[in-house]
Simulated assay, not measured.
Amino acid sequence: MEPGRVLDGRYRLDVALGSGAQGSVWRGHDLRLNCPVAVKVATLHNHPGRGETSEELNRRVARFRKEAQAMARIRNRPHVAVIYDHGEDGDLLFSVMEYIEGSPLSDHTGHGRQVTLEQTVRWTRHICDGLADAHDVGVVHRDVKPGNVVIDGDGAAKVIDFGLARFADSSSSHGPGWGTLHYASPERLREESGSALSDLYSLGCVVYEMLTGWTPFGHLSDPYTVLWHHVNERPAPPSALRPGVPRPLDALVLKLLEKAPGDRPAGARAVDRAIQQIEYVPDNAADPHVDIRHVAEIRDLERFIQRYADGPRATDTDVLDARARHARLTGESGDPRGAAALCQRLGQDCARLLGADHRRVFEAYREASRWKEGVG
């Protein structure tokens, strides 16, 4: 499909953002309202090798329409990308969603990359809010993963790609409808239909990755071995890979990753309530905790750093000061390891941009050492 195609006489496809076996996602433009949109497109043809009948195809299309209509009832919610429209154009089925300016969570984590504890609890709460809004109208995502969560310019997380998730999961027995293997629940891997509790298992995999840099069984490369472990093996707690994870957060992640759906939390809002209890512990708490009193300033600093740290202003005093304060507040919020990593990165960037003998390099590495000592 080429850029410039206009669907239903209204939605112009401008730039392909990604594609998969089930369709593609485009940044588009609503010609009627003159605003950017995200357009998800799938063909109405049978999937190769599936032998899907016309009756099965009709069921998939009807289910997609029903769920698009359900998602369209969610309005003015901050953590879910809502559907504005859906329809057909020739051999294409499409849904139109709000376009979110930002980057996928997969750009921040995975392959050993961790995010701070404060970011983990903040974004987990946002994802829970988005999932709960969808579950309230009877829509199960079925493919919760970092690539389907966007971090916007305000540092907030939004869940995307509801429109095609269930549509891609035909009731036909031809081919698996797991979602994405490293985030798939045991029941989905057994090719059961799954439920909102299946989304919670996938959420557990996402939180595990934010904390450790890896999915629960991300050290395994063989797909069938990964599948077997999801169905049969309990993963190591996140704290085994990242010391300093608060014990309640450790326990919540393992609860989300229970094999039996009934052993998981009762719903996304229950997970949100559990996260709220983790977010604040009094100053005299001996155990690791996450203190959210700095969250507003941390988010402001994130926005400022994201705007300027990789551009021509990277060595400006206010940008370097913002990065140093961001690291310090990260440590004060209960994450000394995260603070040390941010200081280490600041020191490396200063050495590269300003020279190894610059005082900023010394200051950043000194702070990194201080926070490392605080880990114990």
Rank of each mutant, 00 (worst) to 15 (best):
P146G: 09
Y84G: 01
D263G: 09
Y224C: 00
Y201T: 02
R303K: 14
I298W: 00
I127R: 02
E332Y: 07
D300V: 08
D316Y: 12
E297L: 11
N232S: 08
L252I: 12
A368N: 01
H229Y: 15
G194C: 03
R242A: 13
D161V: 06
R75L: 09
P36G: 10
L181N: 00
H182C: 09
L342F: 12
Y11F: 13
E52Q: 15
G311T: 07
A236P: 03
I151W: 05
T180R: 01
P248N: 13
P216S: 09
R307W: 11
G179Y: 04
S202R: 09
L342E: 08
R113F: 08
T315G: 01
A62V: 11
G334Y: 05
W214S: 05
P48W: 04
D321F: 08
T109W: 04
G138I: 13
R75P: 07
L254N: 06
T225D: 00
E98P: 02
D283E: 14
R10V: 07
L164S: 07
R75V: 12
A81W: 03
V80G: 02
G87P: 12
G102Q: 08
R75N: 05
V207A: 02
R370Y: 15
L203M: 06
L31Q: 15
F362E: 12
F217V: 01
D154Y: 13
H141Q: 10
H289Q: 05
R325T: 05
E363D: 15
V207M: 12
R60I: 02
V15N: 04
H230V: 08
E192F: 02
R360L: 04
T53L: 06
A165W: 00
Y84N: 06
L105K: 07
F94R: 03
S369W: 10
G218I: 05
Q69K: 05
I275Y: 09
A322N: 04
F304G: 00
G4H: 14
R299M: 13
P146K: 06
E367M: 14
E192G: 04
S54P: 03
R293C: 12
L117Q: 02
R360W: 10
Q344S: 11
N232R: 11
Y208V: 00
P237N: 09
P243R: 12
G130I: 09
G9A: 04
H111I: 00
R337H: 10
T116G: 03
A274N: 03
A16G: 02
H289L: 04
V144I: 15
D349I: 11
D222V: 13
Q276A: 15
A266N: 08
L203Y: 05
G49C: 11
D321E: 09
G331F: 13
R166G: 00
L44G: 07
E2V: 10
P312S: 14
V150G: 01
T317Y: 06
G51Q: 13
I74Y: 06
R370Q: 10
P336M: 05
G338H: 11
L13M: 04
A351S: 15
T225Q: 07
L57H: 14
L57G: 14
R307G: 03
L320V: 11
Q119M: 15
I83Q: 02
S185A: 14
V207E: 01
K259L: 14
T53R: 07
P186E: 06
G102K: 08
